[in-house]
Simulated assay, not measured.
Amino acid sequence: MEGVYDGFAHLSPGLLATGLRDVTTDLSALDGEGWWAVVVDYEGKVTCARFDRVREAPLPAPAGPWHGPGPVQWHSSLDRPAYEAGVRAIRDHIERGEVYQANLCRVLTAPLPADAEPLALAARLAEGNPAPHAAVIQVPGLSVVSASPELYLSRDGDVVESRPIKGTGVTAADLLEKDYAENIMIVDLVRNDLGRIAAVGSVEVPSLCAVEEHPGLVHLVSTVRARLAPGAGWPELFAATFPPGSVTGAPKSSALRIINELEPAPRGPYCGAVGWVDADRGRAALAVGIRTFWISAGEIRFGTGAGITWGSDPGREWLETELKAARLIALASTGGI
């Protein structure tokens, strides 16, 4: 495929970008000109890749089938006892009034065969786990393949929108009162974040706690919309809203501190932002980097997590992380689904 060796990107809604022009770590470039594929790690590392050619096209065919790790080769940064201990620690923080909710995540890692092609994994996910914000971005030093269901930020001129997900079950009947409360808390956080850079009175919630079906599970999804204040650009947007509220907690500052204490591995692109920005047309769609694989140094990684509240049961939260990971890990493993 043209441009694949220098870099390429294929992002929802079916945009194929080739002809890599340059790569920068400066978010202010997104307020300039050109079409950009964007990956921002949870820890704040920025990769903005500008491409010369962008067109509507299906995902290109890979050179061959996906060669992934074996199902038993995946190792978690937190095993079940450690994860459940983390849930109990967060409940202790909640009891002391330090936080209302915090997202506890773990990173799964496996060795990757040398002939593994990210585009082949993207094709496998597109068939076995289609997602509204699917993406594959490959530039020098970075390969990300995402099947994210969650919108972090979209932009159309000065109108921005976020669609946080909180609450997960196998079916709608599995959703608990705790899931709805968790979603509403995060909606309040996102309203507050957007309010920092929005025109006065423009923040609204068009949809609250809608049930969305995805492969193998359901989510509660809300929509928060705002109009940017004059002079607010991409650096200001990220400064006000990143990392996304749904993968941190409330209050965000306390949740970030607790997450840093409890999680032994960096999240990387997981829980960050993955998507595109069309600076020429003032449009963008950035997903929260969940259901996301990233490849580096001969290894593949995938993150999974759950939002912890006072009503959380440690065993149930572990099972939620398993539910979120199971289908994707099976698709990425040799001999999987």
Rank of each mutant, 00 (worst) to 15 (best):
E150M: 08
T24K: 12
R88V: 13
V38Y: 04
W310A: 14
P111W: 09
E320Y: 07
T304S: 15
D179H: 13
I259V: 07
E127Y: 11
L328C: 13
A226E: 05
S146F: 08
I137H: 13
P65K: 15
A110C: 06
S143A: 15
W294M: 02
A229D: 07
S222Q: 01
D158E: 11
G70I: 14
L262C: 00
A279S: 14
A325V: 04
D174F: 01
L256W: 05
P206I: 08
E299N: 12
W35D: 07
E182K: 11
R283V: 12
L59Y: 07
W35K: 04
F8L: 14
G86K: 01
E213D: 14
V139I: 11
V145Q: 09
G275D: 13
G128L: 15
V144Q: 10
P244S: 06
G97A: 08
T24P: 12
W318R: 03
G305F: 10
L30I: 00
G32H: 02
D22Y: 12
E161S: 13
R21S: 13
K252C: 02
R281F: 01
A135P: 08
V224T: 10
E320P: 07
A330L: 07
G195H: 11
I300H: 05
V107E: 09
T168Q: 05
T321G: 04
I308F: 05
S207L: 13
L331Y: 11
K178W: 10
K252R: 08
T18G: 04
V4M: 12
V170E: 10
A287S: 15
E84R: 13
R155Y: 00
V205I: 14
A120S: 13
L208E: 06
K166T: 04
L142Y: 06
A9L: 15
V203P: 04
N129V: 13
